[in-house]
Nucleic acid binder design. Structure first.
Lengths: 147, 147
DNA sequence: CTATTTAATGAGAATCGTTTGCAAATGCAT
DNA sequence: ATGCATTTGCAAACGATTCTCATTAAATAG
């Protein structure tokens, strides 16, 4: 239905994959997930639409989508794998340790330094993984200044 | 036996832990592991010294050492947990995608930027996890220039 | 040095997320 | 519609890690 889901499906067809009911549904669920859900959450959302779809199919389909570069699978902090639709622009993640929320960010400066560091060590940087963990800054209430 | 292992053991005692045979051996194996082995590799090394030590004990002991801050447990690229003795200086890792080797590095500049980025997003940086993946630079053989 | 107390161990079962084997169902080209 | 390869659902298998619990060993008191 969704534009992006159609694109995802189209990519699959081009990759020689059959377009099946489950795959359509999973594609739709994934593209409208902007909250980095884990697989069981995806499964929950998928079965809310079609209760007949099995967990294996969700896993298998996500793997195919990932292989085609259509979704990304992150494994933050030793936990379970979390899913996000692939986006044009690369970004890294900051985890709010208070709420567990995942915030996306991007820093060209950091990227540049990474490549530099790798080169200094004698490597060509082929990828990286940066996750920041942080606690929300308490917006310090402006205290009335004593004159 | 080793200086560092003694320190590790001493920390444990101070933390109210009993100093047992298995713990001594595991401590020794860990401190002389500069290659970021995974748990089963640690187990292999430990049982090479005392075949009676169980895998559960290795896991339990590593967890205790980690809790005391004496060893660090990393989970690179969706794989198994890998162990390293805690070091004074913080560092990040670069994985050689050709060999799987783990290289340690440190960049104050990157650290600084991370804190900055976090602050801009409204967070106080409490931790981070940076892993670079790279392919060894082929040291381009200086080709004889045709004059 | 031995007895007492209490924590640590070994062996295996249990758990968790993920993957796999297989028979039945389905997509798609004809 | 027909045939056939691909997908599916189910359940069993899996690998890493954790747990259970009876047994053993460390620290402590006597």
């Amino acid at each position: 239905m969704s534009d992006a889901a159609d694109a995802l499906i189209e990519h699959c067809r081009e990759a020689g994959q059959r377009i099946t009911g489950p795959r359509r549904i999973i594609a739709n669920v994934v593209v409208k997930s902007d909250d980095h859900p884990d697989v069981s959450e995806i499964y929950r959302r998928v079965t809310a639409i079609d209760p007949g779809i099995s967990l294996s199919t969700v896993y298998r389909t996500l793997k195919i989508f990932a292989a085609t570069g259509l979704v990304e699978r992150h494994s933050f902090a030793g936990g379970r794998v979390r899913i996000e639709p692939a986006s044009e622009v690369h970004h890294d993640h900051l985890i709010d340790i208070a709420s567990g929320a995942v915030i996306e960010f991007r820093s060209d400066e950091i990227e540049r330094l990474q490549a530099l560091v790798a080169r200094e060590l004698g490597f060509e940087l082929t990828g990286h993984r940066l996750v920041l963990y942080g606690r929300p800054l308490v917006r310090t209430l402006r205290r009335a200044r004593k004159p």
